[in-house]
């Protein structure tokens, strides 16, 4: 069996894939229903696989495969994990110079990756569409999107994408200067979706997640973590009480897992915590899979049968997939 490498060349499977055995997670006292129900599949990381999985910042499911985006600043990467294992889908010329990818999601057979393109004028928000993860084309953005800023997160529901980000005050001072939102429809047309976003004081939207019942928006400002939900990309956004975390913190990923909302939060000392929304509010849960708290989770894609989470530990890309 073979997989696709950069530029579409075929790479013998044994050279880039190594799968670990399916292991049932031991359920300790107080472990969540979610954790008890889970098993994990450990998939290759940079230390285990010849294919280098760099920092992963976004995940999506496309036709049963997992698409991961990330890489380094100005060196974006897209990978696919299929039954054949991991394959890198893009090369150095796949995106405009200066591109960094922050997130990706899929709606049907279409992918939308978002991030920024850094030029002499500073970083500018950017979005790219693809049908296969290998060939990407830039999406034209509405005029209201700030010239200076970065798209931080994207989510898709019912065929429509919502991507969000922040403007910056100046190219020199990359202080968040107001959030923006853009809806991308089935035909690839983008429209402004920033009017109803929660107002922030000196803060930024840090994530948007697609849940079974709508979008969940996460932000951080001087008052701490902020959450809001909406049935559609254009709102209306309704405030959601956040988990009880003291000090500065920011939500980074959310998904519906096993029928419940799971939220990942990074606190003021860069420690990741996991929260499950229940009838009485948020309850802290163990990390999904085998992730330790020093792994900064940056992406999660939920579902009925399996959950995938990814991020970075140091500069090493980390990916775990568990059965839900």
């Amino acid at each position: 069996m073979q997989g696709s490498g950069p530029g579409g060349q075929r790479v013998p499977r044994r050279e880039f894939v190594r799968r670990a055995a399916l292991v049932t997670v031991a359920a300790g006292a107080g472990a969540s229903t979610l954790a008890r129900a889970m098993a994990r599949t450990v998939v290759p990381t940079v230390t285990e696989a010849p294919i280098e999985l760099g920092p992963v910042s976004g995940l999506a499911r496309l036709r049963g495969d997992t698409i991961a985006v990330g890489g380094d600043d100005g060196a974006p990467r897209v990978w696919r994990r299929s039954d054949a294992g991991w394959a890198r889908l893009t090369g150095d010329g796949s995106f405009p110079p200066g591109t960094s990818l922050a997130d990706v999601d899929a709606a049907g057979d279409r992918l939308l990756a978002v991030g920024s393109i850094v030029s002499a004028r500073g970083p500018a928000p950017a979005a790219f569409a693809s049908n296969d993860g290998e060939s990407w084309s830039a999406v034209s953005l509405p005029g209201a999107v700030p010239d200076l800023g970065a798209a931080t997160s994207v989510a898709a529901r019912r065929g429509r994408f919502l991507f969000v980000g922040t403007g910056f005050e100046s190219a020199e001072v990359l202080e968040p200067a107001g959030p923006f939102g853009v809806e991308v429809g089935p035909d690839g047309t983008s429209t402004w979706a920033g009017n109803g976003l929660p107002s922030l004081h000196h803060g930024a939207i840090t994530m948007v997640g697609a849940l079974d019942d709508g979008f969940l928006l996460g932000a951080t400002d001087v008052a701490g973590m902020r959450l809001a939900s909406s049935p559609g990309p254009a709102g209306p956004w309704v405030s959601v009480p956040p988990p009880p975390i003291e000090g500065p913190s920011a939500p980074v990923a959310a998904a519906t897992v096993d029928g419940a909302t799971v939220l990942v939060v990074v606190d003021g000392v860069d420690i990741t915590s996991w929260w499950r929304r229940e009838s009485r509010g948020w309850r802290r849960i163990p990390p999904i899979g085998d992730l330790t708290t020093d792994v900064r989770v940056q992406a999660m894609v939920g579902g009925r049968s399996k959950v995938a989470v990814a991020g970075v530990a140091g500069h090493r890309g980390v990916y775990e997939e568990v059965a839900a």
Binding site: T166, A204, T206, G268
Partner: peptide, 11 residues
């Protein structure tokens, strides 16, 4: 203070 490291875009 009102925060140093906060997981958001920018410094």
């Amino acid at each position: 203070h009102a925060g140093a490291f906060v997981c958001k875009p920018g410094c």
